[in-house]
Amino acid sequence: MALLHQRAKLYQVIRTFFLKKHVLEVETPVLSNSASCDVNLDSFATSLRKDGPSLYLQTSPEFAMKRLLAAGSPCIYQIAKSFRQAERGRFHNPEFTLLEWYRLNFSMAELMDEVAELLSLCFSSELVIKTMSYHDLFFSITGINPHATTIEELMDYASAQGNPEAATICGESIANGLDYVFSQYIQPMLLKEQVYFVSHYPVCMAMLAKLTDDSPQTAKRFEVYFNNVELANGYEELTDADLQEMRFQQDLKERELAAQAKVPIDQNLIAALRAGMPACSGVALGLDRLLMLMSQAASIDEVLSFPVERA
């Protein structure tokens, strides 16, 4: 019961925070004609009618919100139920709640500052913030330069750490290898009670982020870790329709290689980008995990009214 109150209070804090900043609360469809192409994301699929066209539950409200931005909306936020198939564990429920927001003309750095501001408000205390580039963090612990590594080097490192099976998990993908090494050997080393903002990801992990112009080129993507928990993922958003479509096509190829379900690219998003999406930065923050951290819960089940097995 205490957690029901805590969640309600948290939503109040969030809504007041964005009201003061003139960020508009919006609602977008949970069911969509298209799905995320991300090779490591599986959408729940259903259909409009029996034998009708497929519909997919959103894995995040990102695409629909970007379409609103392209259509001329101001800065927007949403508290959105999101769904990811086969994700269940201490930190995962297949149905979960994201807080996602977009800020027009914000750089990645400005958005990171705003995330820190909101987190301090949620925990009602000044948090210790540590900002590090992905490269510096990765290199300091593994001695590997993530911008110029190979899948072989990453898998050799995992083997040396006692995980030769990593190769079967990561396949040929450098991005998978980087994510594996990061979650196995770097994430557990992060200091407790500190909020880590990790930014400037390798280009192969750009997803929907803009790239920098410097050398080596990096993706303007950041992740937030607090008490070893991955809490948020943000981008200075890619606005180039052609480039985004190319990345989606690349994702679909990887899905095919990995024998993942075929999904349709969100052509509405591509069309919106083509019509012109304003420069902006956006971030998705897991509210269930935030509640876990605020209440020191050991499992996501503790902060949900009913976890999936009892839903």
């Binding site: 991300d38 994700e87 564990g89 995962h92 990561c170 991005a175 998978n176």
Partner: peptide
């Protein structure tokens, strides 16, 4: 423990005991 790092591949982090030797393996 179910793990799905960032945008990476899902995997299970498992601790088990070899019942013959008693050794615990990750």
């Amino acid at each position: 423990e179910f793990v799905r790092p960032g945008k990476g591949p899902a995997f299970s982090r498992v601790k088990y005991r070899n019942l013959k030797t008693g050794r615990v393996i990750d």
